[in-house]
Simulated scan of single mutants.
Amino acid sequence: MTEDPRRPLTRVKSGPQRADLLELFFDLAFVASLTLVSQKMAAEQSWIGLGQALLLLSTLWAVWVTTTLITDTYSPRRRPIPYLILGIMFGVMLMSAALPTAFSDHGLVFGGAWAAINLGRGLVLVRSQHGGQGRERSLRAVVWSLSAGALWLVGGVLADPGWRLGVWLAALAVDYVGFGFRFPVPGRAALPQYAVSPEHLAERYQQIYTLTLGELVLVTVLSLSHAPFTPDRAAAFGTAFLTAVVLWWSYAGGAGATLRTAIEASPHRARLVQTNPYAHWLMVAGVVGTAAGVERIIAEPGERPGSVMTALILGGTGLFLCGRAFLEHEVYGRVALSHVFGVAATIALAPLAAHLPGLVLGLAAALVLSGVALGELLRRRRRPTPASVTS
């Protein structure tokens, strides 16, 4: 049987809007890239290197967000969408393979793969649609992809890592601005807001956050398996487990669990669609940074952390709490004081970090997260309703 070419690619709005197995398969490539970013962070000894790792993570996050928006708008079971997703998955795997040396030997591979993903996606969608706003959006995306893609390629051929970082930051800014403002073109009317499926979109963010926690668990297990079992390493292992549990519980028992309800009920649904990627990026970056810190703590529990290691341990905790507070504000319409106090605690601990063993600093970060979780539990007993529901 052949499919009717006139049948629209968009999702059928009736019935359940669950994530497709192909999307979970695609996530495997993204999780592999998270592990490589975490390893790069753990190996870095300079702020420039840490900035490079964050740029690589932000680029890969852009791949995931834009791909999720495709599968939220178009059915993953309608050709050519499945082939498009598999093609993007191949590109992500190529970017991941080039990631450890993206600022040395394989810059052109990393930047070229992302440019190809962006441009190829737009061209496929242009060819597969026959007029309408969907085709208009895809055409505009191609124009923006050409601009950003040129910067990615130029950055990839620059030999100096500093210049490459600067050009790639500009390229990533073009990508984020284009997506955030729906690919504006001078002289043309603004495109309408993205039409989304709340059930599918909420499930996808819940899945990727949970898989990111899986990366923390994986790093914890692998780090201990590669070192002798000693009491201090066992304590670091237990601390990492406590951290992973609290990071999961804070999200699963709070705003993350009510994300679908918030999107469905919000009179400002488009705002939630636009802010979700940034709130979750902060949390994902926090978990990845925490995983890098865990790797270094388990390897050398008694090591006195330098500035970069302190940034991984306390900065990872702080980034997660900022993202969690951001999501809390978008879902409940307020910022919890426990999150503010948690961020303040991580800042207050920073001056003391150089005088503490890595294990103690990791335990302190875990206790900060546990204190915030306790505050969430006490507040949750009052059963707050998302602000968007009561609007």
Rank of each mutant, 00 (worst) to 15 (best):
E3K: 14
P5Q: 04
P8W: 12
L9Q: 00
L9G: 04
T10K: 13
R11N: 12
S14H: 11
G15Q: 11
A19Q: 03
L28T: 05
L34N: 04
V37C: 05
V37N: 01
V37W: 04
M41T: 01
G51W: 01
Q52R: 10
A53D: 09
L60Q: 08
V65H: 02
T66R: 09
T67I: 03
T68N: 06
T71F: 02
T71W: 08
R78K: 11
R79L: 11
P80N: 07
L84E: 10
L84S: 09
M89N: 10
G91S: 10
A97C: 12
A98P: 05
L99K: 05
T101C: 04
D105M: 14
A113L: 06
A113Y: 09
W114Q: 14
L119A: 10
H130A: 14
G134E: 02
R137I: 09
L139A: 13
A141C: 12
V143Y: 14
W144R: 08
S145C: 06
L146V: 11
A159V: 15
G162C: 03
W163I: 09
W163K: 11
V167T: 13
A171I: 06
A171Q: 02
A171L: 02
L172P: 01
Y176K: 13
Y176W: 15
V177Q: 03
F179V: 15
F181N: 13
R182K: 06
V185A: 05
P186H: 01
R188Q: 11
P192E: 00
P192H: 07
Y194P: 12
A202T: 07
Q206C: 10
I208S: 02
Y209F: 10
L211G: 05
V219S: 13
L222T: 15
L224A: 08
P231H: 05
D232Y: 12
A235K: 08
A235F: 09
W248E: 06
Y251C: 05
Y251H: 08
G253T: 04
G253M: 00
E264L: 12
S266C: 02
P267L: 00
A270C: 06
V273S: 01
L282M: 09
M283Q: 02
V294A: 11
E295Q: 14
I297S: 07
E300L: 02
E303I: 14
I313V: 13
G315N: 09
G315A: 03
G318P: 08
R324F: 08
L327K: 09
E328N: 12
V331M: 04
V331F: 03
Y332F: 14
G333N: 00
R334A: 05
A336F: 11
A336C: 08
T346H: 01
I347E: 07
L349W: 01
A350L: 06
A350P: 03
A354S: 15
P357M: 10
P357T: 08
L359P: 07
L369A: 00
G371A: 07
L374V: 15
G375R: 09
E376N: 13
L377I: 13
R380Y: 13
P386V: 10
